[in-house]
Design a protein around this nucleic acid. Structure first.
Lengths: 147, 147
DNA sequence: TTGCAAGTGGGTAATAGTGGGGAACGGTGG
DNA sequence: CCACCGTTCCCCACTATTACCCACTTGCAA
């Protein structure tokens, strides 16, 4: 499980250090350090290679013409890039993804259990505030789950 | 059961002593001194490791794309950090969490029965005042529960 | 007073993160 | 086909942070 946030600098070459505890999860649970980075709403999402395969396979079996499938492919699948960690445990974030998520200076690496997200720091705090304002909805949802 | 407050100093390295009576609960009820610290509204929350596992497992089994689940993960789960106590019975609070909860100087450790909270002292008194102002609503709610 | 338990502070070695030089690779244009 | 250029990857060196110790202080109780 990936949990906890860390703030790291993205350097001039576009490299971001993956926190050691995330690397441990990759190695111990998945046996390698391959990750696939793709886009999400306001951030990037990094999946362990196998987790990604499961998702990609499911989509791969869908229609070639259904507009909803096409839309999902364009939005979610198309940006996916293999980003194996370098020997120092960093991912090189490709320029288009970097730009899309507004990654520069401080980047937050956010554990989301089965994957982790890469956030521009300001956007992350905006996101937190947004969630907090709608917390009423959330707490009733959590009650449904028995939390 | 964790009950009562204590004020402790957070030192230059970000360490806070956990009160001895909380440590006793951890040891006797849970067998170890592992705690998971995560974020909440205005403070941090520390869970005994097993308590946390139950919550995290429930969320972990939910959807990867449902916005409500994502919001809850981002808000509540993502900050969770393993903070095992050191030999002196202190937790090291990671810098991002420290910053979010505004922990510096005096920190209040507040027992909340199954877990305990870490508060910036000023925020804690603000929170108490806010509760007190709304006490009318509260007491009718309590009456419904038969208290 | 002495002794123990609880809290506080700081030194040090190991680990994690940062930054940059330079070789290797791949794409482009002549 | 070859020369050039930009990107990626690997390596090394430096710095910051963390984990693990040990020592001091304070307060309570015997």
């Amino acid at each position: 499980m990936f949990t906890g946030w860390s703030a790291h600098n993205i350097d001039a070459k576009g490299r971001v250090a993956v926190p050691a505890r995330f690397r441990d999860v990759l190695k111990q649970k998945h046996g390698d350090e391959r990750v696939v980075v793709t886009t999400s709403d306001r951030c990037l999402v990094a999946y362990p290679y196998e987790e990604w395969r499961i998702i990609a396979d499911k989509i791969g079996r869908q229609s070639q013409v259904d507009p909803r499938v096409l839309a999902f492919r364009r939005y979610f699948i198309s940006g996916a890039t293999d980003c194996t960690l370098d020997k120092q445990g960093r991912v090189l974030v490709p320029p288009p993804l970097r730009e899309l998520a507004g990654l520069d200076g401080q980047v937050l690496l956010v554990g989301m259990q089965s994957n982790f997200e890469l956030w521009n720091k300001d956007r992350w705090y905006e996101e937190r505030n947004r969630i907090q304002e709608n917390f009423g909805d959330l707490s009733s949802f959590m009650a449904e789950l028995g939390i």
